[in-house]
Design a protein around this nucleic acid. Structure first.
Lengths: 244, 244
DNA sequence: CGAGCCTTTGAGCTTTATCAATGTCGGTGG
DNA sequence: CCACCGACATTGATAAAGCTCAAAGGCTCG
């Protein structure tokens, strides 16, 4: 019935952007993040909301001792409500990079949304956007083999935080360690390392240093994973202040 | 840092319930569903919202030819916005059972929410609840072995649509075929069949007929999967009309 | 009653996890 | 400045989990 995911059909939403409404930016507590810093999901027992201003965050779940799954990566413009995590411990929100995050108590945030239709629309849009990304991630983890999964991850990062170097080439920082990447992809860290080595030896990418990835042939890399197309068509936020 | 998921810490939210606000129930188009029926995600090119009144739905993604992943099962009280799916084809919303679903155009739905704070709160709550369930599903698919995954699925169904038979025993209808279950769990249908046979031979469950599952020892079954605890603590909707 | 689809089960094989050894990077203190 | 330490990464050998393919039995619906 449904055809495979393809970006050609993404339509006008592919180049669509939105800007964080001023009402949201003005309120909330500005939190400076450092790599590895955990962001507590409750504030004095109350639900919270985070808006990513400039950073990369990881939401993950600990399913059993030594079994963790990365659920979603959050980029600038993304919104995280603590109720998105299952109740109980086991849910983690971690900053992967230095940056800035806005934090709200949920009830205060809800009042802001009630008072401001733009903020409301922004929140709903952000939630939908992340939900779609997470669905792709789930499909990748459930259906793709290890190479396809890793490539999907690299394409996601290249799309979200990559800097174009030249035609078909992109550079980005890997904000996760190997084992964190493995947790995100539902793979073993050793297996992951092997696959990265292979991609390197095939000349698809190189690593100036451990945490920097230089994609030497983006189209060829993307072709290795069926999830690439939809990941690349995912819109990014406009983080340059009010819309021009 | 985070301890494994455990229901003991779920707190008061475990027995929390909410009822579909009348404003939402009164508007929207009532759609009668039949098993296998696809619910189109766009209505004349416009975004839609579905509210499950009485049925079980499956949201799934086609990642490539013959590679499909079940993303979320939707139960009574759940809400699905078409923007939760990635753009493009490849996203499917299918009714698994006969039942009733309310359908809205997104802009009309958004106006309803704007005009009615209860409806708004309901929507936000439903989205958060489903997001949490989906996170657990992703963690299960990414980290658990095939038995643990299948058990997690059975526990999910037992919790959501199961009817208690006697102490520790539950009966429910399997609204999916074997291959659909396999797609949901990221497993091969053959492997799945083997595991079900083993669970049957171990006396944990029996199948009066192909689509009926009789769990003979729920605690013993649940003990086989680390995801059971959090799935069982997930709140169900109150589908019996206004709150008593 | 027959056709087609779904399910079960076995045999063999592929992929990925596990275990273990070695290497690299970054920081710290002598 | 260098030696050492711990965390992280790579790589090889091996094992196991789950997939593929194939055959046979059941169910459903015309």
């Amino acid at each position: 019935m449904a055809a495979p995911l393809s970006p050609a059909d993404a339509g006008p939403s592919a180049d669509w952007q939105a800007t964080l409404p001023a009402e949201l930016a003005e309120h909330g507590t500005l939190v400076q993040t450092r790599p590895g810093q955990a962001l507590p999901l409750t504030l004095g027992g109350e639900e919270t909301v985070f808006v990513v201003r400039m950073a990369t965050l990881l939401f993950r779940l600990t399913v059993a001792d030594n079994l963790r799954q990365g659920i979603t990566l959050l980029y600038p413009g993304d919104v995280f409500r603590s109720a998105f995590a299952p109740p109980g411990p086991g849910a983690d929100l971690v900053a992967l990079t230095a940056g800035e995050v806005l934090r709200y108590r949920y009830d205060a945030f809800a009042r802001l949304l009630e008072a401001n239709a733009d903020a409301r629309a922004y929140f709903d849009m952000a939630v939908a956007r992340q939900s779609a990304r997470q669905a792709i991630h789930l499909a990748a983890v459930g259906q793709l083999d290890s190479t396809q999964r890793l490539v999907a991850f690299l394409i996601e990062l290249a799309t979200q935080i990559g800097v174009p170097a030249s035609e078909g080439r992109v550079v980005f920082e890997l904000p996760l360690s190997r084992s964190e990447v493995a947790e995100y992809l539902g793979l073993n860290a050793d297996t992951l390392s092997r696959i990265m080595s292979r991609l390197r030896s095939e000349g698809l990418l190189s690593q100036p240093d451990r945490h920097t990835v230089f994609v030497r042939d983006l189209p060829a890399l993307a072709a290795l994973s069926p999830a690439s197309a939809s990941l690349m068509s995912a819109p990014r936020m406009n983080t340059n202040g009010p819309r021009s």
